[in-house]
């Protein structure tokens, strides 16, 4: 499957799951009892995170911008998802450099999936990017110094949920590449 078709399929499937299922999920009501803030798991950054390593940097950022804007349209947040997406798309090559010892030219179109990176590296890679995304998003959304504790709490709680869901999706769908390798 070519990368373009894979990206478009990912885009449609993951955004559908995000918008129609995860944004609606009622994890909220049960968790608020312990004084937790309301939150939703955000897994759509995965669309951009599993793109090949050698994709041009500018293209990655523009794709991130488009994905973020689509998400914004459906969740009534003006530009906040887009801003967070552009930030993590800019930071992605630098974060990947920490895990791949080879240069990006040698790796060509390898996909940074769970089995390619290994379990620990993948969790750190996903965790780092998701934390940055969530933190930036909630800072923009809540935008007050008074509730900085709320921002941190929301970031951590929903990041844990998002990372778990992303791991689950990788365990289910990224198996093929291990057999080939």
């Amino acid at each position: 499957m070519s990368t373009t078709i894979k990206f478009i399929l990912n885009f449609i499937v993951i955004l559908t799951i995000q918008i129609f299922i995860l944004n609606d999920i009622m994890l909220k009501s049960s968790l608020t009892f312990f004084g937790f803030p309301v939150f939703t798991p955000i897994i759509y950054p995965l669309i951009l995170l599993v793109l090949p390593v050698n994709i041009p940097h500018w293209l990655l950022m523009i794709l991130g911008f488009i994905t973020g804007l689509t998400m914004d349209m459906f969740s009534n947040t003006p530009g906040m998802h887009a801003a967070a997406m552009v930030l993590i798309c800019y930071l992605r090559p630098f974060i990947l450099k920490l895990f791949f010892q080879q240069t990006t030219k040698e790796l060509k179109d390898a996909v940074p999936s769970l089995y390619k990176l290994g379990f620990t590296s993948f969790i750190i890679y996903i965790g780092f990017t998701i934390l940055i995304h969530h933190f930036f998003f909630y800072v923009l959304e809540i935008w007050s110094v008074k509730s900085s504790l709320l921002i941190l709490l929301k970031t951590i709680v929903s990041a844990i949920m998002s990372i778990l869901l992303i791991l689950l999706s990788q365990l289910l769908f990224a198996k093929k590449e291990m057999q080939r390798a």
């Binding site: 523009i62 003006p78 530009g79 887009a82 801003a83 800019y90 923009l140």
Partner: peptide, 28 residues
């Protein structure tokens, strides 16, 4: 160049955010 692309896109996003941060006048 990548940093400049980042800067331009991020500025567009933040412009959208702060132009629409009041719900009475959000055209978005």
């Amino acid at each position: 160049y990548s940093f400049f692309v980042f800067l331009i896109l991020e500025l567009i996003c933040l412009l959208i955010v702060f132009k629409n941060n009041s719900y009475q006048q959000s055209s978005y």
